[in-house]
Design a protein around this nucleic acid. Structure first.
Lengths: 137, 137
DNA sequence: CAGTATCCTGGGGGATACTG
DNA sequence: CAGTATCCCCCAGGATACTG
């Protein structure tokens, strides 16, 4: 294994660039940036939450979508799922170390949006106003 | 207004939290994290590109989707679109300052995926192997 | 409480063809 | 070259109902 010095001196073994269609990163990226997946990951940064707590936190998500996304993220190794042996069963979802790692840039993104959404909306309306295809006479 | 001081003393004027369903940030977030939107923004970090250059860079995108996403991002004020008066018309897309600002966290995310996609894939296969519903025998 | 199952609809998104 | 228009399929995702 260490005899491979001739091929690529210092090139990191990363053929997994999302700009390529066959890269597995495409799928991972889709999970991370899916509308609900992103909010789940970031929402869990404050600590573990139960199903219904997540449902409450993430306004507008349906049970189906929440459940579906949770399963995907657990499968991806980004979340852990722990069933507590209480009488009404309760399940606790938490970020794995890998998930916490992924959540960080997502939170940065979310914060950017929070701070700049209004500016974007302003740009939209400005654009719509300026893009008059039919100049008045 | 000040008579309502009992409710929330020092609430920051940011009702635009993407965790709320009616927040305009939801839509902005969708544009930023859409499969092609993200790659366009990050792809333009190296400098302006023309339509077909983007099409080549972003493997697998159709002309329709590229065009559609470009229009959306221009409208959002994240990209600029400049038509050059050449004989075969050429169009140059570039990040606006706002767009460059947004692209930064997206690039961080993309780099994370690039570095950790394999680990996620490994988690997936491990999960699939462990989740044997029908024990062999 | 924490889901799964089923039905159904809108639109994301690909392929192809045409235009300025 | 840089798109727009059209057709069409598939599935994300909501609503509702049922289960352990």
């Amino acid at each position: 294994m260490e005899a491979r010095s001739q091929v690529t001196p210092a090139t990191p073994p990363d053929p997994c660039d999302a700009f390529n269609r066959d890269c597995p990163g495409r799928e991972v990226l889709d999970h991370l940036t899916s509308r609900w997946g992103l909010l789940i990951l970031v929402g869990l940064q404050g600590g573990p939450l139960r199903f219904h707590e997540l449902r409450t936190l993430i306004d507008g998500v349906s049970e189906k979508m929440l459940s579906q996304n949770l399963r995907t993220l657990v499968r991806d190794g980004l979340l852990s799922r722990e069933v507590l042996p209480t009488v009404p069963p309760s399940v606790r979802y938490a970020l794995t170390p890998l998930g916490a790692d992924a959540a960080a840039p997502l939170e940065t993104l979310l914060r950017w949006v929070k701070g700049n959404a209004r500016e974007v909306v302003a740009a939209q309306t400005g654009h719509d106003a300026g893009a008059v295809t039919v100049p008045p006479q």
